[in-house]
Amino acid sequence: MSSKPVGVWTVDSEAGQIRQLMGRIVIMTDGAGFQPVTETINEWLLENGAGDGLLTLFLRHTSASLVIQENTDPDVQADLLDALHRLAPEDINYRHHLEGLDDMPAHVKAMLTGVSVQVPVVAGQLDLGTWQAIYLVEHRTRGHQRSITMHYIGA
């Protein structure tokens, strides 16, 4: 059984010259939890005249993550944090503990969830779904300064 597309559209890549932008967001987290970054990224795209293209985001840390997740019900974020804590609890006797009991579990959580995402950009804005947003997820108990490098390529 073949599926038929509901709608198809195309961006004309010949409509403008390809260009690239790079930038960085620096964020101070409050400790373990989801920090929304979608609005800041969309503002950066708008301020720099982005059109249609692709944005790559890279978090420059090993104990935090970047994720695209539910943006409406905060229970989703709480449940995800609970699930990550069950997958990588602090009360295991890890070998690496020089930076505290929360550090090694944070590395495990970052490995499971990732430190980069790519998102299409359409008409200068992230082409996310209705219920999606981009979050920096802090896995450490106390707050840290985190930075995200942004690389846009497009028209």
Rank of each mutant, 00 (worst) to 15 (best):
V11P: 04
G100V: 04
S3G: 09
T130S: 06
Q20L: 04
R60H: 09
M104T: 05
R60I: 05
L59G: 07
R24I: 01
L55G: 00
V108M: 05
S65W: 01
L80W: 11
G124F: 00
A155C: 08
P74N: 14
P74H: 09
V108I: 11
A123E: 07
A88S: 09
R24H: 10
P120Y: 04
L55F: 03
L126M: 05
I27M: 15
F34H: 13
S147P: 09
L46M: 10
D127P: 05
K4Q: 11
D52N: 13
G100D: 04
T62L: 00
Y135I: 03
R146I: 01
T10M: 08
L126A: 00
L55E: 01
L66Q: 00
N93L: 09
V108T: 05
L46Y: 14
V122A: 10
H151F: 09
H107G: 00
P89T: 03
G129L: 02
D75I: 08
E39F: 14
L55C: 03
L45V: 04
V119E: 04
P89G: 03
N48C: 03
I68Y: 06
V26G: 13
E99Y: 11
T10S: 11
L21R: 07
Y152N: 03
A133N: 13
R60G: 11
Q69T: 12
Q17T: 14
R142E: 15
A106V: 07
G154Q: 01
P89F: 03
L84R: 10
R95S: 12
L128W: 08
V121N: 01
K109M: 03
G129T: 06
T56Y: 12
D30C: 12
V37P: 02
Y135L: 02
L80M: 06
R140M: 01
V115C: 11
T40E: 07
A32D: 07
W44I: 00
D12E: 06
I25F: 11
H144L: 13
T130Y: 13
V115E: 12
M28Q: 14
V11H: 10
R142A: 05
M1S: 15
R24C: 04
I27R: 13
T72Y: 15
L80G: 13
Y152I: 01
V115N: 10
L21E: 06
I148V: 09
T62K: 02
H61Q: 00
W44Q: 00
A32M: 11
L45F: 06
T72K: 15
G114S: 02
L45H: 02
H96Y: 06
V137G: 01
L84G: 09
T40I: 14
V76D: 04
A133Q: 14
Q125P: 02
Q69H: 10
S13L: 14
A78C: 06
R86T: 08
R95L: 10
H151Q: 11
H151C: 10
G53Y: 11
L98P: 09
L46Q: 12
D52M: 00
R140C: 06
V76P: 05
N93D: 12
Q17S: 15
V26T: 15
G23D: 05
D82C: 15
D73Q: 10
D91H: 03
